[in-house]
Amino acid sequence: MHRPVLIDEVTTWLDPREGSIIVDGTAGAGGHAAALARRVGPGGRIIGLDRDPNMLELARKATAGLPVTLVHAPYSAMRRVLADLEIPPERVQGVLLDLGLSSDQLAWRHRGFSFAADGPLDMRFNPDSSGPTAAELLAEMPADELAQAFFDFGEERFSRRIARRIVETRTAEPLRTTRQLAELVRGCIPGRLRHGPIDSATRVFQALRILVNDELEHLDALLKELPNLLAPGSRAAIISFHSLEDRRVKWAFRNEPRWSILTKKPVIATAQETAVNPRARSAKLRVAERWSNQDPSRTPNPTIPRP
């Protein structure tokens, strides 16, 4: 069962009020959406988006009876979704993104997100989409493009070696399962580095998932648009799980004069939370408040004490 990370911190920082409208751009299994919906009450509304229809089914169960509207859409389509629901930006008091992969998605072996159990190399957030699967990309991409993707999206130092091995292997037999790929990657890592705290295949799996789902493109698109989707005085809270995402969030908040950064350093999980939910160990929460366009007296990004 998925445990929403930093749930107390999210509700504290977003500070949802009775009657507020808040957008959860990554509804997932509905944990954050349900907690926020209880705070906004029957006069408020939570708009939950997700690319994965299977996760939306879980979210519907978790938010049953609460003022939550769930929409099958990527968070990069937030402006269109709000327009379709006839919600103007000045009515939105908060936006949440939890960019991590759900424990449920990892547990579904047929989705191919995890190498903990063998399954097909799919990795699409929307399994009904026409986009290529991870297996199809591994079968078609040239070695230099694979190596660049593993380096850029997984920060994998042995990316070229792994890419060459994939191309050599696929001439005889295409890589079709998570176990095949994980074993190939592990075999490319020098023995002294193979048995660290993180499995050697983790970075390549992360890179492939990002590539399959165009994750960074969706994030960049929303970060650019986000100041236009919030009312002045409203807040955006974004949870990231690796440096590629966290750097983008940090610089988007820092370089946009309409944002006031509320978290000088990212908020991380307490020891108590990581003890019951180890995946929270990597979570970093950054929060910013939207300023008015019309207030020239404000200076960029003062530090606001943590609640």
Rank of each mutant, 00 (worst) to 15 (best):
P305C: 03
Q180L: 01
I21K: 00
G43C: 12
Q272M: 13
M123N: 06
S243H: 12
K224H: 15
A34Q: 07
V276G: 12
A117R: 10
E57N: 00
G94H: 05
R290C: 11
N213R: 03
G94Q: 04
Y75V: 05
R51Q: 08
Q93C: 06
I198Q: 14
K250Q: 11
E289A: 10
A64N: 04
D128R: 06
G44I: 08
I22M: 04
V287A: 08
A221G: 12
W259L: 04
S102P: 12
S76E: 11
I189E: 05
S200T: 13
A64S: 04
H32R: 14
R248T: 08
H242V: 11
G30T: 12
S243F: 01
A283I: 00
L58E: 09
G112Y: 00
G44M: 08
L219V: 11
R160Y: 02
A236K: 06
E57D: 11
D98A: 02
A271N: 15
A283L: 05
R203H: 06
N293S: 09
L121W: 06
R306V: 12
G191M: 02
A149C: 09
D246M: 04
R258W: 04
E173R: 15
P142M: 10
S159E: 13
T26K: 01
E156A: 09
G100Q: 09
T303W: 02
S103G: 13
Q206K: 03
V92L: 02
R51T: 09
A33N: 00
A143F: 02
V23Y: 01
S282Q: 05
R298V: 07
L223W: 03
A231W: 03
L211S: 10
L208G: 04
K284T: 04
A280S: 09
A182N: 03
D8V: 03
R248V: 11
I210D: 10
G112M: 07
S240H: 12
R45Y: 08
N277H: 07
I210E: 03
L56W: 06
G41Q: 14
L285H: 07
A163P: 09
P197H: 08
A29P: 01
L175K: 03
A147C: 00
V204P: 03
D50M: 02
T69D: 03
R91N: 09
A275W: 02
Q105I: 07
E245L: 13
P53F: 02
A77L: 05
D128S: 10
G100K: 07
R298Y: 00
W108L: 14
L230Y: 00
G65H: 14
A271E: 15
G41E: 13
P42A: 13
V167K: 03
E183A: 11
S102L: 06
P197Q: 10
R38D: 14
H2S: 05
H110P: 01
G48T: 12
F205W: 05
I7A: 13
S76I: 15
T63W: 05
E225R: 15
T69E: 07
E86K: 15
L138Q: 05
L222V: 14
L82G: 10
E136F: 13
